[in-house]
Design a protein around this nucleic acid. Structure first.
Lengths: 203, 203
DNA sequence: CAATATCGACCGACCATCCGGTCGATATTT
DNA sequence: AAATATCGACCGGATGGTCGGTCGATATTG
């Protein structure tokens, strides 16, 4: 029970997160120094360690912000009313919107993805994995609904979900690396449109 | 003109590359030290600098080995005889085979991908980009053939090629991260099969 | 309401460590 | 002996994290 509450806590944490997001998403974890973050936030280096106990924890809080937003969207989508294809198309739109709004967070996730095992300790890596697993399960549930309705050919729903996530992630990457040329909305709609029409059950 | 040729040159370079490939692909560039590589190769640290002028150049030679193999395969595929779909299916098989044989190189490419701008200097980054561009152009040429034959709906061939590469890369990533569960061949055939059947022209 | 005491947010110089790359010593081959 | 090849101790720069210290705000007291 603190005797005094810090009136600037939220503002400070916001400043620091904002600066860290910008730098991490541009340069990755290893190429961003804590000193840089503190300077970009307009604060002293020690202040960062007042609010977070390590560079790693600061980074993880940014990762978790994005992963939890994505997972929440997918899990909500499963519960929506309506036929599979309606739900799926709406989900695609919302995913695209989320990508666009949170582009910097997307970039950050990619920067951290390849060597997350060397950025985060085991417990955090497990947390990240469980977010991804949750996403896959949500997609799989949606896909199963599609199969029951006959909108998708019967197959291993979990593996199909994994393939769909993979394809979406690959398109996301191309978007981030060719932002002026390749649009994520266009790409997702092209691939998933064709995928579902091609995978569709009997006409 | 050296007075004597080094009878061990190829062997040494092989030892070093093999050790570096293994370590880089497991731990990434920043988490692998030159000392580790030299120990894994059973050589002194200085010897690495006899054969390469920096850690960066050693890493790049591994990247280039893989990128050039991929590019060569794609460019050859364009010149094959036959109808689009035959060529495409054969290409898919050969790509899958290459992935499987060169799994460690694939992993290395992923580890380096996100922060290649902080691993390699500008000239090397440009080279990498031109490999990827070449791949896209090769796929686009194939896709254009498919459009002319009516096997694929007319669309922007270059963007479709980019989307296809993106999807393939995403599936590759899922494979590398879920190797016991998700097979790259299965995934590629599922997605590209559905994609082409869905994208196919008039039946 | 002053005067005093306490607190906690903030700072940045400093420390310990790590690592790529160098270089002189040494061994081997011609 | 000259050229080539190998080695590993050492150097210098970089960086995450620490810690003693500052200072204004808040609480306490007379």
């Amino acid at each position: 029970m603190p005797k005094r509450i810090n009136p600037f806590k939220e503002q400070r944490e916001g400043q620091i997160k904002e600066a860290a997001l910008k730098l991490f998403s541009q340069k990755g974890f290893h190429n961003t120094t804590v000193t840089e973050i503190s300077e970009a936030a307009g604060l002293g280096k020690g202040t960062i360690y007042w609010y977070w106990k390590s560079k790693e924890e600061l980074a993880f809080s940014l990762v978790e912000d994005m992963l939890s937003a994505f997972l929440r969207l997918l899990e909500e989508a499963v519960g929506w009313e309506g036929a599979f294809r309606e739900k799926f198309d709406r989900l695609l739109d919302e995913v695209i919107a989320l990508y666009r709004v949170e582009k910097e967070h997307c970039r950050l996730l990619w920067k951290f993805r390849a060597d997350r095992h060397y950025i985060f300790d085991q417990e955090y890596v497990r947390k990240v994995a469980s977010y991804y697993l949750g996403m896959r399960k949500a997609i799989a549930a949606l896909v199963e609904q599609g199969m029951e309705e006959g909108a998708i050919r019967r197959a291993d729903a979990d593996k199909l979900a994994l393939a769909m996530l993979g394809a979406a992630e690959g398109l996301e990457l191309e978007w981030l690396e060719n932002e002026e040329y390749f649009d994520i909305g266009e790409g997702l709609k092209l691939v998933f449109g064709a995928l579902l029409d091609g995978l569709g059950g009997e006409t």
